[in-house]
Amino acid sequence: MAYTDLTLETHVQEAQDGESFRVWDESVWSGEEGNTTGAWIVLFFINDDEKTIQYDNYLLIDGADESKWDEYLTRDGHIVSIDDLLILGEAVGDKFEDGYYVIRVVVTDGTYAAGAEPYFDNSQAFLAKNRCMKRKMPAKLLTWPMTDEMYRINRDIFMQGLYLESAENAVDLGKKTQFRSFMALIKAMYNYYVIEECW
């Protein structure tokens, strides 16, 4: 029997080092989560050319092993390491590339046809590298006393934080164009101040 009253929802949080993300469940299950026999994550990366790169399915329930699924259902969530992800069977790399991601969680109780299982898409900006670069700005750029030049630099650093937040909010709202626009500005700011990449 299919789920009778399921509202899927997830939360996703990328690690500061860009090597993993934490995902946890916020669904309304109406007591039916125990009926789940299959669950997996599909990660999509949408690059600057609007090309979608799909990762291979990452199983939360792998045969009789439900340990990842059990973690996912807790508030602590399950940590997905990039080391455990593949694209067309090939290893991905050691860091998530900064950009626009969609993290799809798919569940089934075994009654759905393949491709018709319930799923939830969570759009997320993964910006670990850009966040890291912003951390480097004060030590590199700020000095005392506060001159007119320093006021400007100080505001630029503050605004970089605002634009990073705005980029993340744009992805939360599915606004790809605005995300690209914010990221172009953020990149230009790093170039202007010659902030080196963290990795």
């Binding site: 500061q16 080092d17 890291c132 912003k134 951390r135 480097k136 700005m137 004060p138 030590a139 700020l142 506060m146 006021y151 100080n154 505001r155 650093i157 503050f158 934080g161 963290c198």
Partner: peptide, 23 residues
């Protein structure tokens, strides 16, 4: 402006794992 500068410094430093290699 000075409070903003302190906030910029604080944002850079907080929630940092000392085993990282940013600083």
């Amino acid at each position: 402006e000075e409070a903003m500068m302190l906030m910029n410094i604080l944002d850079a430093l907080k929630h940092y794992d000392v085993d990282g290699d940013i600083f």
